[in-house]
Design a protein around this nucleic acid. Structure first.
Lengths: 260, 260
DNA sequence: GCTCTCCCAG
DNA sequence: CTGGGAGAGC
């Protein structure tokens, strides 16, 4: 089972690149982030014409997640409150989470808040959101032991995942963000499965549009797949496909593909 | 000598379409309107790389005219005050006129105001602008009898030039606009040279982007070449090239080409 | 509809 | 740098 994650930075702008990529790289499930469109305006037909079933949760301008699957998925759940109830409804105002099941695998597609700047209101929101995510993953784990989380985590797990040494004030690399990744996700037993196959640095999934980030390979690995131990040994391969980042008018992220 | 006119509706957005068109349709002079860019930001190199010399007069967001010539032109004059003095400086705030000489032909490239709605302030400005144009063309005629005016006139000379019957309240077809075309331009002896070659209706150079104007061929012929009698017999051909209007993300206007 | 500017976000 | 939005202009 191939599961890919791609922050497309607007599905309307990127629809053609995504269909081209899917034709060259058929996957069982494609997890998209930053679709930036309300469900009613989502460009469904290019993907449905390729045979994919679409499960989407979007909003105007910002955020938005989607699951494309070659076979129908079951138990589609949008947001955190689907599992945790209205207590967390406030964290579903931004469309950042969608989950569904394919065969025996629960797939959770996430767009973790960026956080803007260390210490900002958005940074505090990111850390709170990760606390809610923890509860959500725990509740998911009560139902199944075969979970694949993937998406744009907006956190580089360690400095191998960044093109340069980081400072404590670097958003996506600050101690509190990395601690949250550890506490809220890894401590539940989830494994950053890319690292099963690649121990070295220099593998990136995002390059800033600004100041020639891609031309100078100033990248970050912030798009990940996390597996529960019950799935770990089923992982055959996990790789970043840099090709879409080389296209004209690309997303700033490129796809990461896991093969189970 | 081939002289083409094309309202490109932003040269930055249309640069690639214009270079492609020039490679397939080499002309001696290309007259552009609605370049929508200040001179400093004009994309010169795609056209200079094709061997054209550029003469431009642009502003931010609106209007803007340019002349591209395969051989250098002489006596480049920007605006009306170059000929009429500071008395008309107010009509040069909007960049709508540029003229230059190739061989023995004075080429005047114009972007006539649209006028918005009959009776509006912009409509009055359009009629005043055409009065100033009259003085400008008269002064030009004092210097040479071989003049080619071309550009976007935002006036359909008669109802053959519109896809439907017009009303007196139709902008671009109102009696006062057509009267101004007659008084300020035709009465000086200028000849709408397209009509030397095509007497029938149904020839259009502009289709509104809205309501499928092009798909339904709801067009207007508002882009013209006018010649002085001394040039009339040298005109070999004048035709509208509809092909660029069929491209993806086209200008709402398509080029008109005169061969002298 | 499709430009443009300016603004916000990443 | 590249998204989307709003409002103006045609």
């Amino acid at each position: 089972m191939k599961i890919a994650t791609w922050n497309v930075n607007s599905i309307r702008t990127r629809a053609e690149q995504v269909t081209n990529w899917l034709q060259a790289n058929p996957v069982d499930v494609l997890c998209l982030q930053e679709t930036k469109v309300v469900d009613r305006d989502f460009p469904r037909s290019p993907f449905e014409d390729l045979g994919y079933h679409l499960y989407i949760s979007g909003q105007k301008s910002y955020n938005g997640v989607a699951l494309f699957s070659q076979t129908p998925m079951s138990d589609v759940a949008i947001g955190f409150s689907s599992l945790l109830g209205d207590a967390v409804a406030e964290f579903d105002l931004q469309k950042r989470a969608i989950a569904a099941t394919l065969e025996d695998v629960r797939i959770v597609n996430l767009y973790v808040p960026n956080g803007s700047a260390v210490g900002s209101d958005k940074y505090e929101y990111k850390l709170q959101w990760l606390q809610v995510l923890h509860d959500y993953l725990k509740a998911t784990g009560d139902r199944t032991d075969k979970i694949c989380i993937c998406g744009d985590f907006n956190i580089a797990p360690d400095d191998r995942d960044v093109y340069r040494d980081t400072k404590d004030t670097d958003i996506m690399a600050s101690p509190a963000e990395r601690e949250a990744l550890q506490t809220q996700i890894l401590d539940l037993g989830f494994i950053d499965i890319f690292r099963k196959f690649h121990e070295d640095g220099g593998h990136y999934s995002w390059w800033d549009y600004r100041r020639g980030g891609f031309a100078n390979n100033r990248g970050w690995r912030i798009d990940h797949h996390y597996l529960t131990p019950a799935l770990r040994d089923r992982a055959r391969h996990c790789a970043i496909d840099i090709a879409p980042r080389r296209l004209e008018r690309p997303s700033d992220h490129t796809p990461v593909v896991l093969e189970l």
